[in-house]
Deep mutational scan, measured.
Amino acid sequence: MLDDRARMEAAKKEKVEQILAEFQLQEEDLKKVMRRMQKEMDRGLRLETHEEASVKMLPTYVRSTPEGSEVGDFLSLDLGGTNFRVMLVKVGEGEEGQWSVKTKHQMYSIPEDAMTGTAEMLFDYISECISDFLDKHQMKHKKLPLGFTFSFPVRHEDIDKGILLNWTKGFKASGAEGNNVVGLLRDAIKRRGDFEMDVVAMVNDTVATMISCYYEDHQCEVGMIVGTGCNACYMEEMQNVELVEGDEGRMCVNTEWGAFGDSGELDEFLLEYDRLVDESSANPGQQLYEKLIGGKYMGELVRLVLLRLVDENLLFHGEASEQLRTRGAFETRFVSQVESDTGDRKQIYNILSTLGLRPSTTDCDIVRRACESVSTRAAHMCSAGLAGVINRMRESRSEDVMRITVGVDGSVYKLHPSFKERFHASVRRLTPSCEITFIESEEGSGRGAALVSAVACKKACMLGQ
C-alpha cells in the first residue's frame, strides 16, 4: 500500500517536472537572447534605426563620474514606483581627507489618484512632500541643488532636461508624456511658492545606482535594477552614441532593455503563462523582457503555473481556492519566502493557508518547484541581457580580458534567497573573457542622484555659470 502511494507521488512529481521543464533555458538559448539583445542595442544607438529599435539606448548626458572633490548639501528625489523618497545628502571631506556622503531620508507613498490623475496632481503632491521634508529638517530658507531620480523612459536633451516617452509600472498621470519632466517639477514648486529649489540633474535609477557604486569602486561602469521592473545602464564610447554629437570619451546610456521583445525577438521563448500575464497587464505587448524578470510579474506567473497544475490534477487534489483564482493573489514576496523555507515546509504551508488552501507535504514541495522554475528562468533571462552589455563593452574597448564592476539594486536581487547566485553564475558562463565584480548599492537611487548633481554643480562652477 505504502509502495503504491510512494509510486503515485513519484509519478505525480515526474509529471510536474515535465510541465515545469518549459521554463528551462539551455545555454544556447541564452546565447541567442544575448546576441539578439546586442543587435537591438546597436539599432538603438544608431541614428537611422533608433526610432524602430525596441531597446532605445537613451543617452543620459552623464559623462563624468564623481571624483571626490564636490562638497555641499544636496536634496535628492526618487520616483520610480508607488513609494517616493526625499533625501538630504551631505557631501563633504571625511576623516583623513576621505570623501564622505551622509544621508537623511523619508519615504512617502503615492496615492492612487496622483498616479493615475493628471501630471499637475502628481507633481503638486511631490512638491508637497518636499515642503514637508524641508519643514522637518528646518531647511526651507536654503535654496538647495536638487537631483531627481526618475525611473521611467526619458529622452534627455541635457542633464536637466528630459522628455517622458511613456509611463510604465502602473503610472498613468495624463499630460506628462511628451513633456519635460524637470519643467513639470519646477512648475509645481513655483505653484507652491513656499520654498526654492535648483533642479540641476535628472537621472534614471540605473544611472543613480551606477554612480553610487562608483563611489565604492571606481571600476563600476554598469548599473542595473532588478526590482519591480528590470533595466540597466553602462558607459558607452561616445563615438557609438549617434544621437549625441561628439566622439570623445564616454557617456552613460540608459538601455531601457525592459522593452526588448516588443518587436518579436522573444516570441519563441514566451510561454502561455507569459501571454496571460501580458494580456492582463496595463501595457499589453510592451516591456516583454521586463515581464519575464521583474517583481511586478513574478508572483503572478507562479500563480498561473499553480492553476495549470491544479487543472492537471497534480496539486491540491485538483481544487483551487477562490483566493488562488484571484489575479495578483500570489505576491512576489511569497516566491522569495517559499524558496527561503528551511525544509520543514512550515513557511510554505503558512503562505498557502493564507490563500485558503490546506496543502499536503507533496503540495508544498511542488509549489516550491514552481517558484524555483519561474525565478530561475528570470535570473537566466536577466543574465543574457547583462552578458550582452558586458561583452559589447569588452569588444568596443578591444580588451582581451576586461575587469568590470556592476552596481545592482532592486528588491528581487536583494531579497530573493537564490536569485543573485543563479544570476551571477549564468552571467559568468556567458562572459568567459571578463572578470566581473557585483556590488549592491546602498540607498543607491538617492545618493547617486545627489552625486550626479554634485558633478553638475562642479561643472557649472568651472564653466562660470
Rank of each mutant, 00 (worst) to 15 (best):
D4Q: 04
D4F: 07
R5W: 04
A6R: 10
M8P: 05
E9P: 11
A11I: 14
K12M: 15
K13S: 12
E14I: 05
E14S: 13
K15Y: 09
E17Y: 13
Q18Y: 04
A21S: 07
E22L: 05
Q24S: 10
L25M: 07
E27F: 02
E27P: 01
K31C: 05
K32G: 10
R36Y: 07
R36F: 10
Q38H: 14
Q38M: 11
K39I: 05
R46A: 15
T49R: 02
H50C: 08
S54Y: 01
S54C: 13
V62G: 03
P66I: 15
E67H: 05
G68S: 09
G68M: 05
S69G: 11
G72H: 07
L75N: 01
S76M: 06
D78V: 14
D78M: 07
D78L: 06
G80M: 08
G80D: 08
N83S: 06
F84Q: 02
V86M: 06
M87Q: 06
L88N: 14
V89K: 02
E95W: 08
E96L: 12
E96N: 11
G97T: 08
Q98P: 11
Q98I: 13
S100Q: 14
H105L: 09
M107G: 14
Y108L: 00
Y108I: 09
D113Y: 13
D113N: 14
A114I: 05
M115W: 11
G117K: 03
G117Q: 06
T118D: 06
A119V: 08
E120D: 15
F123T: 02
F123Y: 09
D124W: 03
E128G: 08
D132T: 04
D132V: 09
D132L: 11
F133Y: 06
F133S: 02
K136A: 06
K136S: 08
Q138G: 12
Q138R: 12
K140N: 04
K142N: 04
K143R: 08
L144R: 05
G147Y: 02
S151W: 03
V154Q: 06
R155M: 07
E157L: 11
I159V: 15
D160C: 14
N166W: 07
N166S: 10
W167Y: 15
T168C: 15
K169Y: 11
G175W: 04
G175R: 11
A176K: 05
A176W: 06
E177R: 06
G178A: 15
N180T: 10
N180V: 11
V182C: 15
G183C: 04
L184F: 06
R186S: 07
K190G: 13
K190E: 07
K190S: 12
R191H: 04
E196P: 08
D198R: 04
V200G: 11
A201Q: 06
A201L: 08
V203M: 02
V203G: 08
N204V: 04
A208R: 04
A208E: 05
I211H: 02
C213A: 07
C213L: 07
C213S: 11
Y215R: 05
D217Q: 01
C220R: 02
E221A: 04
E221F: 02
V222I: 06
I225L: 06
I225M: 09
G227H: 07
T228K: 11
N231L: 02
C233V: 07
E236K: 03
E236S: 00
E237R: 11
N240M: 06
N240F: 13
V241N: 03
V241Y: 04
E242L: 02
L243S: 07
L243R: 01
V244E: 08
E245I: 12
E248Q: 15
R250Y: 15
C252E: 02
V253R: 02
V253G: 01
N254W: 05
T255L: 12
T255E: 02
T255Y: 04
W257R: 00
G258R: 02
F260C: 02
F260S: 00
S263L: 05
S263D: 14
G264T: 02
E265H: 01
E268W: 03
L276W: 15
L276H: 14
V277M: 10
V277Q: 09
D278N: 09
E279R: 12
A282P: 10
G285W: 01
G285M: 03
Q286R: 14
Y289M: 07
Y289I: 02
K291T: 01
L292I: 15
I293K: 00
K296F: 14
Y297A: 10
E300C: 05
V302P: 00
R303V: 01
R308S: 05
D311F: 08
E312T: 05
E312L: 12
F316H: 15
F316P: 01
E319Q: 07
S321P: 12
E322S: 13
L324A: 02
R325D: 05
T326W: 05
G328P: 03
F330K: 00
E331V: 13
T332P: 04
R333V: 08
Q337C: 04
V338M: 05
V338D: 00
E339M: 04
E339V: 05
G343P: 03
D344W: 07
I348E: 05
I351D: 00
L352V: 09
R358Q: 13
T361L: 04
T361W: 14
I366E: 03
V367P: 00
V367Q: 00
V367G: 00
A370H: 01
C371L: 02
C371Q: 03
S373V: 10
V374L: 06
T376D: 03
R377P: 00
A378M: 09
A379V: 07
M381Q: 01
A384S: 07
G385F: 04
G385P: 02
L386V: 14
G388I: 02
V389Q: 00
V389G: 00
I390P: 00
R392W: 05
M393T: 00
R394H: 10
S398A: 07
S398F: 09
D400V: 09
M402I: 12
T405L: 03
G407A: 10
V408K: 00
D409V: 06
Y413F: 05
K414W: 02
K414M: 06
L415C: 14
S418E: 12
S418I: 08
F419M: 01
F419E: 00
R422M: 09
F423Y: 00
H424K: 15
V427K: 00
R428I: 12
T431G: 01
P432D: 14
S433E: 15
C434R: 00
C434L: 03
C434Q: 05
E435L: 14
T437R: 11
I439R: 10
E440H: 09
S441C: 10
E442Q: 05
E443Q: 12
A449L: 06
A450Y: 14
V452M: 09
A456I: 12
C457N: 15
C457F: 14
M462S: 13
L463M: 13
